[in-house]
Amino acid sequence: MIGLSHYLILAALLFSIGLVGVIRRKNLLMLFFATEIMLNAANVAFAAISSYYHDLSGQMFAFFIIAVAASEVAVGLGLLILLYKKYGTLDLDNFTMLKG
């Protein structure tokens, strides 16, 4: 039987994968993917808990997150294209203009 804890463990695993991706990857596009994975990990957790408590507000929240993530990707990818056009690369190690 698949219970709440399974879902939560899945969400935690997904989140960890996303987090490691955010920390380790150097390509900005990959960073975006990693963030998406983290967001979706949260969505899974929301949906599971919502269903467990029979409370729809969790699922509503998940929808919000999906909407926000979609718009974020739209804006973010636009910026990435501009960045790529300007510098010809998306490697983070090349963007250190704010070095203190």
């Binding site: 987090l19 955010v22 920390i23 900005l28 960073l31 983070l92 190690d93 963007f95 203009m97 704010l98």
Partner: peptide, 17 residues
């Protein structure tokens, strides 16, 4: 602590995490 400011987003993300 100024050395934290590498300008590299990746490092900042590590600190944030």
């Amino acid at each position: 602590s100024r050395k934290m400011q590498t300008g590299n987003l990746s490092d900042y993300l590590k600190w944030m995490a």
